[in-house]
Design a binder for these strands. Structure first.
Lengths: 168, 168
DNA sequence: CGTGCTAGGTTCCTTGAAGGAACCTCACCC
DNA sequence: GGGTGAGGTTCCTTCAAGGAACCTAGCACG
């Protein structure tokens, strides 16, 4: 099968999904960020094959998203903790959670609530414009070719489209 | 292989990744939301196998994320457009893009820039608290069990953790 | 009217990753 | 020196991803 490698593609979404676009990886990161950090706990929690879990963790460590850390000396015990790069995946998880809550939560409501320690309130995450603070949607944003943009594999048509948009 | 079905799991992230946690789906949604909507254009742009593209599109239509729409009568031509449910995946894409920009953009900068039509500025997306508007990070939020929470497969350990947290 | 082009898929075959379960190893503990 | 628990590896089977060829319907043109 040799899943098509997307890491070379000139698109940050492609680069991110190359790592993250795997059903298990998102759930592993959710667990690690929430506090389930040990191999056996992850295996039990996710119901994932131990082989696949080992492979995913190794990948995440290699990518610098997690580090394996000794939390006890005698006996030696290790667990996985998120690096800064890993913690910054949190917004992706919140966005997924928001969407899942909105479209799949049953009558009983969402399975997990979120408390923001900054303001103390139960809340949800919104995707906002970094400049003006207003919510961002697909309809009021425009993608434009950026400085690092090459039209490479994975963005054939998209590249042309963005270029034409930049001119028009 | 029979990818473990996650849709029954009491976690919105799991439900969302069940659909979205696939390298191609995110890229297809990126393209569709940006304006690449025809089968052949998608196939060319992504370099995806036509078979897999057809399967993904069918899945996305079945999930109500895309609809197949006739845009020309003679000859009959159809394309795929995002529903509201699909357009609301945009924040997930922006979060992925942000992360990819931050950690993988080369010296030349990000491949795509974003213009917010609301304020007119080039911008990026931030993940903010819906209540107070401040940015949300993994460190200043706390997950708590919600009304729809059952401890089901996929949240064994997590469920216990959240419960203990709710009491402590 | 037959040949060709384009959009939009299907079919066929091969490979390789996901699942599952058993097995392994090391350090402790009694 | 047998048991236990953490943290993986190994082995085997199955099923979907990739790739490329093939198919079909509707023009369109000479």
């Amino acid at each position: 099968m040799t899943r098509t490698p997307l890491s070379g593609v000139a698109c940050s979404i492609a680069r991110a999904t190359d790592l993250f676009g795997d059903a298990w990886t998102a759930l592993i990161m959710r667990d690690v960020l929430v506090g389930v950090t040990r191999f056996d706990d992850l295996a039990e929690d996710l119901g994932i094959s131990r082989k696949v879990l080992a492979a995913r963790l190794a990948r995440l460590v290699a990518e610098g998203v997690l580090v394996r850390e000794r939390y006890q000396e005698r006996p030696v015990r290790e667990h996985y903790v998120a690096t800064e790069k890993g913690r910054e995946l949190y917004p992706v998880l919140l966005a997924l959670m928001n969407w899942g809550d909105r479209w799949y939560a049953g009558e009983s409501g969402p399975p997990v609530r979120l408390r923001h320690l900054g303001c103390g309130e139960l809340t949800s995450a919104v995707c906002a414009c970094a400049t003006c603070g207003e919510p961002l949607t697909a309809d009021d944003t425009l993608e434009l070719p950026g400085p690092g943009g090459r039209t490479g594999p994975g963005t054939q048509v998209l590249g042309r489209l963005l270029k034409s948009r930049a001119h028009g």
